[in-house]
Amino acid sequence: MKPRELKGKMKNLLLLSVAIINVACNDYAAEETVHKFEIMKTEEEWKKQLTSEQYQITRKKGTERAFSGKYVDNHQRGVYHCVCCNNELFSSNTKFESGTGWPSFWSPLSDSNVLVTLDKSEGMTRDEVLCKKCGAHLGHVFDDGPEPTGKRYCINATSLVFVKK
């Protein structure tokens, strides 16, 4: 093998190794740079805008206690918006009783309003749901929901604002 060919193969191997390490380490900073959010604020700006609980959940990827959120038992008609940027996320038409303790939806209002990304935190592998406009952590989506999608978008009520129809 010629030195130039060896150099090319070594470069490809190095790039593959870096990609594997990023996935293994769950490099969220690298994932977020792939998607440019329309609304970008500093941590201090988010802290001024949000309550401490909203900040912890939406900006630091926290989770509220099961059955503690104000929308778990909400049965009114309307639309759930992002608490950070007011992006329309979920309709009450797709909300269902999952029994998990968090508001659950079988579909977002529009796929263009949410971003689903890989989450390997807490020793688990899950699909994280983010607001596509501002990057707020909303919750996770699972494959154990009702038809027609079979999905369960398990969303923190703290990350939502409900607008009644």
Rank of each mutant, 00 (worst) to 15 (best):
G69L: 05
K164E: 15
F67D: 01
V163M: 01
Y55K: 02
A30H: 04
V129W: 06
K36I: 07
R65P: 12
D73G: 01
V79D: 10
N93E: 14
L50P: 12
W106A: 00
M40H: 03
E5D: 15
K120A: 06
T63I: 08
E38N: 09
K47G: 11
S52N: 14
A29S: 11
L130N: 09
N156L: 05
E53M: 12
K132S: 15
M10Y: 07
R126Y: 05
M40I: 14
K132M: 11
G78S: 06
L50A: 09
V141C: 08
G101V: 04
R4V: 01
K7W: 10
T158Y: 08
Q56C: 05
D143F: 04
K164F: 01
T149M: 07
E128P: 03
G135F: 12
V114C: 07
G69C: 12
V129C: 00
Y153T: 01
L16C: 02
H137I: 15
L109Q: 10
I20F: 14
S110D: 15
K132H: 15
S92Q: 05
E122H: 14
V23W: 12
M1V: 12
W46A: 13
H35C: 00
K164H: 11
C134M: 01
C134I: 05
D119R: 13
C85A: 05
E44N: 13
W102P: 04
N74H: 02
G135Y: 13
E128A: 06
L109V: 07
A29E: 11
F105M: 04
S121Q: 11
F90I: 07
I39N: 13
C84H: 06
K61A: 14
E45K: 08
A24D: 04
A66Q: 13
Q49P: 13
C131T: 13
N113S: 09
K11H: 10
V114R: 08
F105A: 08
D119Q: 11
S68G: 09
L14K: 13
V116Q: 12
M10T: 00
R59M: 10
D111L: 08
D111N: 13
H75W: 04
K60V: 06
T149H: 10
S92G: 11
E122D: 03
D27Q: 08
M1R: 12
K70H: 06
K60A: 14
W46D: 06
N93S: 07
R152P: 05
S107H: 12
Q56K: 12
K60L: 15
I57W: 02
F162N: 09
L14M: 13
Q54A: 11
E38P: 02
V34Q: 15
V161Y: 05
G8T: 08
